[in-house]
Each structure stands twice: as structure tokens, then as C-alpha cells.
């Protein structure tokens, strides 16, 4: 392949690397650029890698090991959460999964909801539910009472 190929037999146009380095705006520019989407992209991959072990481990222990779900009840939860190890596991898994899923759904909403109003309200609903799930879940793990 020569570089000076005629337009007709040229391959796909050269692609700019995704997430190319930040372009700093001039001091006086109206709106500063943010790297939020880059951080979100990196977060999806780091959280995904951790969730691979946390979530698959959780499913294995809860559904497959020993008697599976058939052995799960209040006493079983009390036994597990007596250990800081499992409480930490569940807390980290809760936070990562909820944030990973919320950010994933944000992408899905951005892809399909075309009206600005619809996008806005769907995202408000999403963030409200995420706040609820994170707060409730964290509270339950921290305040669990085996003698209830």
C-alpha cells in the first residue's frame, strides 16, 4: 500500500485515537472542558474488573455452594455478616455495582432518549433511584442487628 492511494481504493479513513488528550481551552473561553467522560470510561473498566470477582463470587456462594438459595435465611445472613470480611465484600460490591450500572444506564438514556426534556427527567429518575439504593443498602449493612 502506498500512502498516495486514489480515493476509490483507499481503506477506512484514519481514526483518531478515542479519548485523545484534553484540549485546554483558552483562559477566557466561555466553558471549561471537563474530563468527566474519560474518567467515566476508565471507571467502567476498573469497576467491571473488580465486579467480575465480587459478583460472580457472590452468585457462586449464594446460589451454588452447599445448598444454594435453599439454605439462605435470616440466620444465614447473620452468620455471614458477623464477619467484617463479608460485610466489606457486600458493601464494595453494592457501591461498585450501583455506580457502574447507573453510569451504564446514563449511556443508554443518552443513546435513545432524544428530547432534552425526556433525557433530563429519565436521568433524574435514575439518579434518585441510585441515591436511594446506595443509601438504603449501606445503612442496612452498617446497622444490621443479628438479635432483631
Amino acid at each position: 500500500m502506498t500512502t498516495a492511494a486514489a480515493p476509490a481504493d483507499r481503506g477506512a479513513p484514519e481514526l483518531v485515537a478515542p479519548r485523545s488528550p484534553r484540549q485546554r481551552t483558552k483562559p477566557g473561553a466561555a466553558k471549561a472542558r471537563s474530563n468527566f467522560e474519560l474518567y467515566a470510561w476508565v471507571f467502567m473498566r476498573i469497576s467491571g474488573l473488580l465486579l467480575f470477582f465480587l459478583v460472580l463470587g457472590h452468585l457462586f456462594i449464594m446460589n451454588i455452594l452447599d445448598g444454594g438459595v435453599q439454605r439462605v435465611n435470616f440466620g444465614f445472613v447473620a452468620g455471614r455478616w458477623a464477619s467484617p470480611f463479608w460485610r466489606t465484600w457486600d458493601l464494595v460490591m453494592l457501591l461498585l455495582a450501583e455506580l457502574h450500572g447507573t453510569n451504564g444506564l446514563r449511556t443508554v438514556i443518552n443513546d435513545y432518549a432524544e428530547r432534552a426534556q425526556t433525557r433530563f427527567w429519565l436521568k433524574m429518575l435514575l439518579y434518585t433511584s441510585a441515591f436511594l439504593v446506595v443509601t438504603l443498602g449501606t445503612l442496612v449493612i452498617f446497622t444490621f442487628d443479628p438479635d432483631l
Binding site: 435465611n73 445472613v77 450500572g101 442496612v140 446497622t143
Partner: peptide
């Protein structure tokens, strides 16, 4: 599912039954 699952697990804070 995670949404539903956090809600059902939260019942450990309500009562064992």
C-alpha cells in the same frame, strides 16, 4: 434486578420473619 434485590435484602433490617 439489583434495585429489587437491595430492597428485598433490606428486609433483614425489618424483621427475621
Amino acid at each position: 434486578f439489583l434495585f429489587a434485590h437491595v430492597l428485598d435484602t433490606a428486609l433483614v433490617r425489618v424483621s427475621p420473619s
